[in-house]
């Protein structure tokens, strides 16, 4: 298993037939190769190096005024990296989304979509509520104690200021 799975014919066909980046991202997310590359990178001990090597090897083929032949693989890589918890993924998506060249018309827009989704996915929450003691009832017969909660060691209550 390696990132070479992203060079598959199946992925290329999808990229060449789907016009909008949003639809393309949605379809690429369901591709078996993209899923397996994402899983592979998640488990890899040196994902950063593998991503950088994959990009560098393909960028050699970038020629002015010629369609970049590895654009389908770059689109698929962007989708594979969108939820990957590594800074290299963030760098790749940011740089690709900022790229505006005619040789790669689609991948920057795909990267923008992936980056947006990444910000939504990047942090998940587990909320929980626990109760220790019953809270005092508002109509309790005895007066509840006055409670002062403060933050900061330099906290100076108004009482002290008046006394001074």
């Amino acid at each position: 298993m390696s990132l070479f799975e992203l060079d598959s014919e199946e992925i290329a066909q999808v990229v060449f037939t789907v016009a909008t980046p949003k639809a393309l991202c949605a379809i690429l997310r369901t591709q078996r190769d993209v899923k397996s590359v994402r899983q592979y990178l998640w488990e890899s001990t040196d994902a950063r190096r593998e991503i950088e090597e994959f990009i560098r090897e393909r960028l050699i083929a970038l020629r002015p005024k010629t369609y970049f032949p590895h654009e389908p693989a770059f689109c698929a890589l962007a989708v594979a990296l969108e939820s990957l918890p590594t800074p290299a993924a963030e760098v790749f998506l940011s740089e690709l989304s900022a790229l505006q060249i005619a040789e790669m018309p689609l991948s920057s827009r795909v990267a923008s979509q992936c980056l947006q989704r990444r910000w939504e996915l990047v942090t998940s929450n587990t909320p929980a509520v626990f109760k220790v003691a019953p809270l005092p009832q508002p109509n309790a017969p005895s007066q509840p104690p006055y409670l002062r909660i403060s933050a900061g060691v330099s906290y100076a209550p108004p009482i002290l200021k008046d006394a001074a």
């Binding site: 939820s83 929450n125 587990t126 929980a128 509520v129 626990f130 220790v132 809270l135």
Partner: peptide, 25 residues
């Protein structure tokens, strides 16, 4: 001492566990 546990799985790079406790005696 009191202990409260929350289980979670990573679905993203970061995960926040937000545990609200009410009524500290």
């Amino acid at each position: 001492r009191h202990e409260f546990a929350s289980n979670f799985k990573f679905r993203a790079r970061r995960h926040r566990v937000i545990q609200r406790v009410e009524g500290f005696p």
